[in-house]
Amino acid sequence: MIIHHPILGPRDAQEFVYLGDASLIDRPDGMTAGVEAFHDYLYNRTNPAGEHQELWYHEQGDRSWLVVTRNTVTHEITKVELARDVARARGRTK
């Protein structure tokens, strides 16, 4: 596959490491959330046959974590964003 890196343009997916569902961005706060919330965060994922937001790491590149919107059936990639931007937009801070 080819991933269109928002900064570096088209790059071979071989350069990336795949992590999984981009919901991993939404980590609860450990000081306020309990075991249940963390359990949901870590283990409960949807597994769509279709459009899926995923985390990919450009390990053999610029080390950016990316959020890739990819169709798991056709492998079509419709959107690639810097995960840092997505995380900030979702209100993640320090």
């Binding site: 570096l8 071989q14 350069e15 390990e59 053999q60 590149g61 610029d62």
Partner: peptide, 9 residues
């Protein structure tokens, strides 16, 4: 650019 040559970054 960073790239891979024979498994080496």
């Amino acid at each position: 650019t960073r790239t891979v040559i024979e498994h080496l970054g």
